[in-house]
Design a protein around this nucleic acid. Structure first.
Lengths: 211, 211
DNA sequence: TAGATTGTTAATCGATTAACAATC
DNA sequence: TAGATTGTTAATCGATTAACAATC
């Protein structure tokens, strides 16, 4: 089987497909034709078909569409939701604390093992049943627990130094919620930036366009 | 002057340019040539020039580059950071609460006026000096305070109904942190989605590619 | 069979990259 | 003047959209 090249735009769409498919399944649907999905995605049936072809293990059936269970399974396998991954949260401030409590990560197969914070006061009580450790235990915990992913929610002055420690300790991916540029590490670790400033710029521009 | 078409990708880049330019200014730089910026952005000098040309009010100078203060000012005007905009946070849970406390919004020109929550207990004390009001005051506050932007951090079952109320009350833009599809409202209001599932899918894919 | 939906191949569109003349 | 950087125009690249034959 030939491996298809999958663009970042496609990858960003797959979780949205999955959400819609689960909704349709909950409504009792068993077979989904691409025009139905295109409608929900505000896209075209051609794009839906190409996207599904790229990740599906079985072909669609002309005149019917695709089996919804197969498709959900293919998407979950592609997205890795079926494989459990251990993660930790670095910086248990307002945002980090919110993510300690967020239940939605479990649906990605993401298991938040614990948090880390440089403030000793924060390490004195559990959040959502998870320990918050002091920073000097970082390397030890990553290695012993075989943690793969770090959710980075620290103040920006600490972001780069801590990221280097994460890489050296064996972290495979950094989900970067700071505004700091970590690109110098991207040969050694997967980095995904969540940039509120970019997102807000898009909102502003849309507001101005609507006027 | 002819208006240039600016793509969403460009718009997402502008806040990142601004950050780098402010860093360079802090280091004492007064003139920036595009190769320097391209290096920081991990992009090409051609792209940098095109991006700046699209939003700048003055041309660059061959052999010198561009004046850093002019550029910062042009970017801030384009991004609307110089215009104060009132916003409110709907749903003061973990994430909404974190955003009530987040200081970074001020740099976008965003003034978080207050929060709203359906839980009466939450309305009894201020967060970061801001009131949390019960939901039945929503329309009144939006109109009296002339609020433009809503930051939506409610549980997903409430997202669509509340969004309709926001639109009817005159909100211009919804920054949607829920996983709910609000596209049916997009003719009436600007909507920008922050989708953690898509972002995480990109991280996972990068991790798998590095292996 | 007829027709809806599939998958493939070709055309279009848009963004990035390259080439190069203009200029301080 | 020489040369670095600009802005413009052309070429390339990639993703989306369109066209259409295949098929259940």
């Amino acid at each position: 089987m030939e491996k298809k090249i999958i663009s970042t735009k496609q990858i960003a769409r797959y979780p949205i497909y999955l959400k819609h498919l689960k909704d349709l399944k909950a409504e009792g649907l068993e077979i989904v034709p691409s025009p139905i999905i295109a409608e929900l995605m505000n896209s075209s049936e051609e794009q839906v078909r190409k996207d599904f072809q790229a990740i599906s293990t079985s072909p669609g059936k002309p005149r019917y569409g695709r089996n919804i269970d197969d498709l959900i399974n293919d998407l979950e396998v592609f997205l890795g939701y079926n494989k459990l991954k251990k993660a930790l949260i670095i910086g248990v401030g307002h945002l980090g604390g919110a993510y300690m409590n967020y239940r939605g990560f479990a649906s990605f197969g993401l298991n938040i093992v614990c948090g880390f914070d440089s403030n000793i006061e924060k390490t004195k009580e559990k959040i959502n049943d998870k320990f918050v450790y002091p920073m000097d235990l970082l390397e030890k915990v990553i290695k012993e627990e075989k943690i793969e992913i770090a959710i980075l929610t620290v103040p920006k002055d600490y972001a780069l130094d801590i990221s280097k420690r994460l890489v050296n300790a064996g972290i495979k991916g950094i989900w970067n919620f700071t505004s700091v540029d970590l690109d110098e590490l991207k040969e050694k670790v997967a980095i995904e930036n969540v940039n509120l400033a970019s997102s807000f710029a898009l909102l502003s521009h849309k507001i101005n366009s609507l006027k």
